[in-house]
Nucleic acid binder design. Structure first.
Lengths: 217, 217
DNA sequence: CATCCTATCAACACTGTGTCGAGAAGTTCA
DNA sequence: TGAACTTCTCGACACAGTGTTGATAGGATG
């Protein structure tokens, strides 16, 4: 029974609760950000760049967003919502074939993030300097950890998976592996799993860690 | 047969090849950096702070180091050297008892980094904006991946570990898990493994992933 | 004692952030 | 129509931080 994230629907990141033609501008800023992030990292994009890209002056930018970071957070908010939904779906179907089920679940998050890689890479960058970004990420992670913990526990209860480390700890370690591995692959780091291999490898570790017998002496 | 890193011994990060009393100053800058990093993140430490802490003016700082980043890189260089040695030692002894051997190896890197956590946390932060930091980290990771790959392959050759995903891929995934998990624990992130649990959990995943039987249908 | 190298810093030039206050441009309604 | 209000815009400013320049002090060297 997957947990939903505490939706942040209600609190829009930019200003403007009321209607106005400036909605276009707000959108222009967001799309400019997304476009520029495909070219260079967040740290090399200035408010000036975003403003110019959206056809406004720098001070006007601040009418729409309180900071550069807020733009990114808005982008991340949106992506997270999409990614969460598809993962929960996959996790729910997992009952029958473990390997295939887990694979689908990992695939879901891989796809959700892979399709907007510039944005998550930037989010990861932002996380190191921005507390709000850290909290947002922590909330997302917490949701996943909860979901995966429940599934592991139910697999153990079903007698399909053996007892072992606390399910939550296992979930944390495996999800952290995924996070780091996906980041490295998306960023094309030097030791990183090839894009067409990453799912096979990660799923294999998940399945062995969750269902594998206790280690041979 | 553990690989040694391409040592960067020869190219000191600060200036000053020749002797001078200014060695003290250089050391003062480094210790100031280490001290300040225990209080706040790298992004909140300015060159001014480092200079003042070392009792010199900001321009004088630039006589010793080309930038704030260079100071941190020097700190990391040193730490890496220490950490590498102890891990290789542990890995070498692994032949007899797999679980205990891997545990010692992970312990080694955990201790090496744990004792200077402010510095690695800062290094991770720096990595997002500084190419040289990324390369340094990549080199370190590559060394570890190579070492671990060799050990996994030899365990497979010995017939103790079953065949599976390419040893190198497995090594990458597991090391990335460790990296992320250790970071989260050191940084006291919200979903993170407890400090007194992390080794048990990570070792368990390693052992199952490397020695575990193929997953049950 | 002239000269060279180390070491030092005030002053500057530059980049980027965020704010202020003066307005333009549109809407409402009397 | 035209006052009053709200939305939106930007020039000009104040700051914080980085990195550079040029002048200079003070040893060591020959």
């Amino acid at each position: 029974m997957p947990t939903s994230l505490p939706t942040s629907e209600a609190a829009p990141r930019g200003r403007r609760g009321t209607r106005a033609s400036g909605d276009d501008r707000e959108r222009a800023i967001l799309t400019t950000a997304e476009r520029l992030l495909e070219e260079r990292p967040l740290s090399e994009i200035s408010v000036e760049d975003l403003a110019r890209g959206a056809g406004i002056s720098r001070p006007t930018f601040y009418f729409y967003f309180p900071s550069k970071d807020a733009v990114l957070l808005t982008l991340v908010d949106r992506m997270v919502e999409a990614g969460t939904a598809s993962r929960e779906e996959a996790l729910a179907k997992l009952a029958k074939e473990p390997r295939a089920g887990w694979r689908m679940a990992l695939q879901a998050s891989f796809d959700a993030f892979g399709s907007r890689r510039a944005v998550i890479l930037a989010a990861a960058e932002l996380r190191t300097t921005n507390a709000e970004a850290r909290e947002l990420w922590a909330r997302v992670m917490e949701g996943w950890v909860t979901d995966v913990t429940v599934v592991i526990e139910s697999e153990r209860a079903r007698g399909v998976a053996p007892a072992g480390q606390p399910a939550r700890d296992l979930a944390i370690a495996l999800l952290q592996m995924n996070e780091r591995a996906q980041y490295a692959t998306f960023a094309a780091e030097s030791p990183a799993l090839a894009e067409d291999r990453i799912l096979d490898v990660l799923v294999d570790v998940w399945v062995r860690a969750i269902y594998g017998s206790a280690p041979a002496a």
